[in-house]
Every structure is written in C-alpha cells, then in structure tokens.
C-alpha cells in the first residue's frame, strides 16, 4: 500500500514554483497533497498527484529533476489528539519518520497524512490500529 510521491529539485529563486506548477497545469495534473522543504539555496518539492507517470513525463520534458519516493498515507481522526494517536502507533512500532505532511482533502470525515519512513513495506506490516490508504483511495481524494 505504498504510494508514489514526486520529489522535485527547486532552485531558491523567484518564479520557479510558478514555472513548475504551470508545467503540471499544462499536463492537466491534479495535486492531491504537497509540501516544500527548503534550505538557503534550494528546496525539495514533494507532491502526491492523481497521475504520477503523466506528471513525470511532463516535468522531464522540461528538464526538471524529478524522482519518485514511496510513501504511506494514513487516515487521521480530525479531532484533538488524532495525530498524537497515530504517531504513538509509529513510536510503539519503532518506525522513524523522515517527514510528513497533510492532504488537502479529507477521506470521509478523516484527515489524511503522508508519512515518509525508511522502509515503507515494513512499516505497512508493523502498523496496527490505523487505516493505511491505498493508491486508488488517495488518487480519488
């Protein structure tokens, strides 16, 4: 139940994000979730999109450096303590989180979070008591 995430190298200069988004817009890609990690000189834009292959093709055609990374998407109750509960499950299963971010849309009444962990396959097996979403679920959001 791994989900493909796109990671894009973005130079820290004005207009770059807009350029990348317009490439995706041109290819009619819909973004389901995104986060931007930044340093002094550059950033890494991470995204879950509805059609990853199409997005990669469009980006590569414009010489954008893009890589795919497997992530897992987890349902989180949209109420105080919801995320804490999920993170406790990760902690108890001794799974280290590299980074995480949230989806724009909810799944039913629950929020959805993206988690990057070292070994997603193992994490999927270990994690009990939280709902891990499939790629189909996510792209539909």
């Amino acid at each position: 139940m791994k989900i493909v995430q796109l990671s894009i190298f973005v130079e820290n200069r004005e207009g770059r994000l807009a350029d990348i988004m317009s490439i995706l817009a041109g290819a009619k890609i819909n973004i389901r979730a995104l986060s931007l990690a930044d340093t002094k000189d550059f950033g890494v834009l991470r995204m879950i999109v509805d059609t990853p292959e199409k997005a990669i093709e469009a980006l590569k055609a414009k010489e954008i450096v893009v890589k795919t990374t497997d992530i897992i998407a987890v349902e989180v109750e949209d109420q105080p303590g919801g995320l804490a509960k999920v993170l406790k499950v990760f902690k108890d299963s001794k799974i280290n989180i590299e980074y995480m971010y949230a989806f724009v849309e909810k799944n039913n009444s629950n929020a959805v979070m993206v988690f990057r962990v070292e070994n997603p396959d193992e994490a999927v097996k270990k994690i009990k008591g939280v709902k891990i979403l499939s790629a189909e679920d996510v792209y539909k959001l």
Binding site: Q5, S7, F9, A37, T39, F42, V44, R46, V65, V66, K67, T69, E98, R116
Partner: peptide, 11 residues
C-alpha cells in the same frame, strides 16, 4: 547543476 543521479528526496 543537479541531475537525476545526484538528486535525492532527502535534504
């Protein structure tokens, strides 16, 4: 210049 070989998702 960064290329695909060099690029990593991790900062």
């Amino acid at each position: 210049e960064v290329n695909e070989k060099l690029f990593s998702d991790e900062i």
